[in-house]
Design a protein around this nucleic acid. Structure first.
Length: 317
RNA sequence: GGAGGGGUUCCCGAGUGGCCAAAGGGAACAGACUGUAAAUCUGUCGUCGUAAGACUUCGGUGGUUCAAAUCCACCCCCCUCCA
C-alpha cells in the first residue's frame, strides 16, 4: 500500500465550471508566478479528444509547460486516486525546478483527492467489479443495495438503492478487503497530498450560456466532428472510458446519421450546460472554495500571489 | 370540395365518463457525492398554502350527465389522401 508520509506540497488550485475561463486565468497565473499547469480534469487527459474536451490549444500550451493533458488512449481508464498520484509527482518535479505548480481543471473529486486525501483501500480485482456489474444488470441495483445493507449498513443508509455505481464500489471493497467500506473512510485516510487555495471561478449559468454556445460553434467549426470520426478509428467502442465526455456521443450520433447536425448541436449544448450546473453544485458545497469573478484574471493572479508568498516562507522551499 | 387523422400541463407523449392536477420521458430548479466523477444517483416540478385543503387547466364555445381531458353539436387550427 502506497504510504505518503511526506508533508503536503504547496500548490495553487483553479477550479470552476466548464467554460468559465480557467485556461486564460491559468496562463495569467503562470506568467505572474513562473508557473506550470497541471491538468485536473478527468476528460482532458484523453489524446483523442483535444478539441471536444476543450484542452488548451497548442498555442496556449506553448506559453508555459502543461502537464497531464491528452496523454491517455480512449480505451484506458483513470481514477481519481491514480490521477492524484501522478499529479503529485508532477507537482514535486515542478517545485524541484523552482516553479509554481498550478492545478487547473473542473473535476471536483480530483481536487478533493489531492487536498484532502483518500482512503487507502487496496486495489480491487477487476474481475470482482465485472462480476458485480453483471449482477446489478441482472438483478437490479436495489437487490445489491440490500446486500450492502448487511455488509456496511452505515454506507447503505447514505446512498440510494438505485445508485449502481456506488453500490458496486462499496460492495467490491467490502468483499475484497473483508472490511466495511466506511471502515476505510474512518480508519485509513491518507494525509493530504497537497495544500493550497481552491480558487473557484464564480460563473453563473446565465453568464456561461452564451459562452458555451459560442465555444461549441467554434469546436464544430474547428473540426470536432472530424475528431470524433478519427477517434472512432482508434477506439471503436463507444462504451470506452474516453468516449464518455460530453459531445463525444452526440458527435458520434450525428456521424452515424442518428441525429441531425442541428439536434446534435442543441443536445450537446444542453448536456454541457447541465454538466456546468452539476459542477457548480459540487463547488458550492466546498467550504474551502474561494470564489472569484470569472472574467477577471487579475483577481485570480492576486489571490494566487497572496497565497504563494506565504507558502514560500512557511513551507520554506 | 370530399375522405381520414390530430390538437393534453415548458417540450415530446399516454390517457376515451368518476380511482386525473392528469402515466412516462425530456427540460428546468434544488441536492448528494472518498479510486468510472464530463460519471452515478436523489428530490421538486399548474397556482396559493408549512399542512389539511382551496382554486384554475387538457384548441374554442355551448350542451348531455350527480360527474367530462374523455360523450354530443357547432366553430377554429394542423397533417395525410382523393378531387
Amino acid at each position: 500500500m502506497p504510504e505518503t508520509t511526506s508533508a503536503p506540497l504547496p500548490v495553487i488550485c483553479l477550479a470552476g465550471p466548464t467554460g468559465s475561463g480557467k485556461t486564460a486565468a491559468a496562463l495569467a497565473m503562470a506568467a505572474a508566478l513562473d508557473g506550470e499547469v497541471v491538468n485536473a480534469d478527468s476528460r482532458q487527459v484523453y489524446v483523442d479528444f483535444p478539441l471536444i474536451t476543450a484542452q488548451p490549444s497548442p498555442e496556449e500550451r506553448a506559453s508555459c509547460p502543461h502537464h497531464l493533458y491528452g496523454f491517455l488512449p480512449t480505451e484506458n481508464k483513470i481514477s481519481a486516486g491514480r490521477w492524484a498520484e501522478t499529479a503529485v509527482d508532477k507537482v514535486r518535479d515542478i517545485l524541484a525546478r523552482g516553479k509554481t505548480p498550478l492545478l487547473v481543471g473542473g473535476t471536483g473529486l480530483y481536487f478533493q483527492a489531492l487536498l484532502r486525501g483518500m482512503a487507502e483501500i487496496p486495489p480491487v480485482d477487476p474481475q470482482l467489479t465485472a462480476a458485480l456489474t453483471t449482477r446489478v444488470d441482472a438483478q437490479g441495483a436495489p437487490a445489491l443495495h440490500a446486500e450492502l445493507a448487511q455488509a456496511d449498513p452505515a454506507y447503505a443508509a447514505k446512498i440510494h438503492p438505485n445508485d449502481r455505481q456506488r453500490i458496486i464500489r462499496a460492495l467490491e471493497v467490502c468483499q475484497s478487503t473483508g472490511r466495511p467500506f466506511t471502515w476505510w473512510h474512518s480508519n485509513a485516510m491518507s494525509t493530504p497530498l497537497c495544500v493550497g487555495p481552491l480558487l473557484t471561478l464564480d460563473a453563473s449559468l446565465a453568464w456561461l450560456e452564451p459562452r458555451l454556445a459560442r465555444r461549441l460553434d467554434l469546436m464544430l467549426a474547428g473540426g470536432a466532428l472530424d475528431e470524433a470520426r478519427a477517434a472512432m478509428r482508434c477506439c471503436a467502442d463507444p462504451a470506452a472510458p474516453g468516449w464518455s465526455g460530453i459531445g463525444c456521443a452526440e458527435a458520434l450520433a450525428h456521424l452515424q446519421g442518428r441525429l441531425s447536425l442541428e439536434d446534435c448541436r442543441s443536445l450537446w449544448l444542453r448536456n454541457t450546460r447541465a454538466y456546468a450546473k452539476r459542477q457548480l453544485t459540487w463547488f458550492r458545497a466546498r467550504p474551502e472554495a474561494q470564489w472569484l469573478p470569472p472574467d477577471d484574471p487579475d483577481a485570480v493572479v492576486d489571490a494566487a500571489c497572496r497565497f504563494w508568498q506565504n507558502a514560500r516562507s512557511s513551507y520554506n522551499f
